[in-house]
Amino acid sequence: MTAQESAENSVITTKGQRRKRYESLVRDYYHDIFRYACWLTRHRPLAEDLTQETFMRAWRAFDSLQSPDAAKAWLFTILRRENARLYEKPRPELDDVDDHEASLAEAAHLEPDQLMEASMLHKAILALEPEYRDPLALQVIGGFSGEEIGVMLDLNNNTVMTRLFRARNKLRAVLDGNIESKQE
């Protein structure tokens, strides 16, 4: 084999490996990326576009990913940056709640009673201020620790933990209030 053929083979192998690693990244994380995009944009079509943009950017910058362990946080960070870049202009609120409720029933196999509670909780999460909703979604969907969320949101760990605590309290208050008023 000549030096040129050897170099060409090596390039093909590198490209193939790169593509395989990217495909594995898509399979492992696209569900969570899409879910987080849904809560970030509160609109499914935008979330779909944002997921596309995120993975397109990830593929282009794939060589900058240092370690597979960092892949998930890396993707969520790309998504947040893309969201800020593409959708920073104020936009009208679009009614996409029905879609989420359909997803809820389908995804979680809920009984009618549970669906009512889930629907209440869903609306309460949508009504949360972004400063509370965002860390909560990162924790629950992404499984990130307070420190990791702090790095992504540029907050210290104590602030993140406080916001997570308050977010849950706010949601519980809405749920408990609704349950009590139903029982009265």
């Binding site: 899409f34 779909e48 989420h100 809820l104 995804a107 979680a108 889930a118 869903h122 999460i125 629950v140």
Partner: peptide, 17 residues
Amino acid sequence: KLLQQVLKAPTPPAGLQ
């Protein structure tokens, strides 16, 4: 449990993968 179910409910559209 409910919080997990609700936040993880959005499912990607067919064909996105």
